[in-house]
Amino acid sequence: MKKSIIALAAAGLLGAGAASADDFSYISGGIYDVGDSDIYVEGSVRVNPNLVLSAQFVDVGDFSLYAGGKYFVDFGQQQDVETFIQAGVSHYDFDVSDDTGFYGGAGFTTKFDAYSRLIVDARYDTVLDGFFSVGARFRYEFVDRFSGDIGYRVNTSGMDNEVRVGLTYSF
C-alpha cells in the first residue's frame, strides 16, 4: 500500500511539470548500489525559476524514499554555476524497522558544455541516528532529452556508500 501511494505521488509530481523543459524536469532510473539495493527511480520538476521539487525511490531494504526540493540561490557567482539549498523528508523501510526523518543541505551544478552537467551536494539526514553525505553526479546528453547518469555518494556513520548508473529523460 505504501509503495502505491509513493508511486502515485511521484507520478503526480512529474506530471505537474510536463509543460516546462529544462535540465531539472526529468524522470530517471537505473542501477543503484547501496547495501542490498538494485534499482532506483527518480523524478524532478522545476515549478518556478528558483524551486525544483523531486522524489527518489530506491529498493534498499524494503524501500527508501526521498521527497523534497532544491531552492536555487544567486550568490553572484559565474552564470554557468547554479547554487542551491535542499530540504525534504526521507524514509527507510526495513524488515525489522522503519525510520522517517528530514534532510537538508546545499550544493551546486554546472554545465561543462551543451551536453554535460555536474551536480555536487552535501547533506545531513536524521534517519538511522543521522549521517552526513557528499555526492557527485555527472549527466551526459546522448540525444535530445535523453541522457546517461553516473554518480557516487560518500556517507558517514556506517552507512554504505552509494553508486548509481542510469538513464534520464528530460521534459
Results as ranks from 00 to 15, higher is better:
H91V: 09
Y92Q: 07
F84Y: 07
D144H: 12
T109G: 05
R117V: 07
V154H: 06
V81Q: 03
V163E: 04
L118H: 03
E141C: 10
A18D: 07
S64P: 01
V134G: 00
Y115P: 00
R137N: 10
D125W: 05
A7F: 10
V41L: 08
Y26L: 06
F57Y: 13
D160H: 04
F138T: 07
T126I: 05
L128A: 15
S157M: 08
N161M: 04
N155S: 08
V89I: 14
Y92V: 13
D121T: 08
S28E: 02
N48Q: 09
F146W: 13
D144S: 13
F57C: 02
K70R: 15
V58H: 03
N48L: 08
G101Y: 04
D125Q: 09
D144N: 14
T100H: 03
A21T: 14
A87T: 10
Y71L: 11
R145S: 14
K111T: 12
E82F: 10
E162T: 11
A7Y: 09
Y71R: 09
Y26W: 07
G166Y: 00
L14Q: 13
G69D: 00
N161F: 04
T100Q: 01
Y26D: 03
T100A: 01
S54L: 14
G17T: 07
K3N: 13
T110K: 06
F171C: 09
G61H: 03
K3H: 12
A16I: 14
G29D: 01
M1S: 15
E141M: 14
G69T: 07
G88H: 04
A19I: 13
F142I: 15
D160N: 08
S37F: 01
L53R: 07
E42V: 00
A7E: 12
R164G: 08
I5P: 03
S90L: 02
L118Q: 05
S147L: 01
D59T: 04
V127C: 04
I27V: 10
A7M: 12
V96P: 02
V154A: 10
F108W: 11
